[in-house]
């Protein structure tokens, strides 16, 4: 995500989106992005990719699980390699 009111995001949100920011905070660039799409300045695929990552994040979060009455899981996978487990840390 971007930091709040990133000046670059307010002027050229499509550049930040292509670079790899998926969530522009706290918002307010909706119409600029729509215009970038209609002006051929932003690829639809970049917008879809970012939306997909945001939706994956929302879908795996606690509020979604609570609202839909499903079980939430830890966002850190259990098999993630860690420099700490090499030292025998239990956590």
């Amino acid at each position: 995500m971007t930091d709040w009111y990133n000046q670059k995001s307010l002027s050229d949100p499509q550049i930040l989106m292509h670079a790899g920011n998926d969530l522009i905070m706290p918002g307010s660039t909706q119409t600029k992005l729509q215009k970038a799409i209609s002006d051929d300045n932003l690829a639809l695929g970049d917008l879809q990719r970012s939306a997909e990552r945001v939706l994956n994040t929302i879908m795996n979060a606690y509020t979604f699980a609570k609202d839909n009455n499903v079980k939430a899981h830890s966002l850190t996978p259990s098999d993630v390699s860690t420099i700490m487990t090499d030292n025998g840390q239990s956590w």
């Binding site: 307010s28 600029k32 992005l33 917008l47 879809q48 970012s50 939706l55």
Partner: peptide
């Protein structure tokens, strides 16, 4: 996820990639 995403318009996608604050 692709079958879901493809049904969303650019306008809807632009809301998903932004926080809730609107212009």
């Amino acid at each position: 996820m692709d079958q879901f995403i493809v049904t969303l318009t650019p306008k809807q996608l632009s809301y998903i990639v932004n926080g809730s604050l609107e212009p």
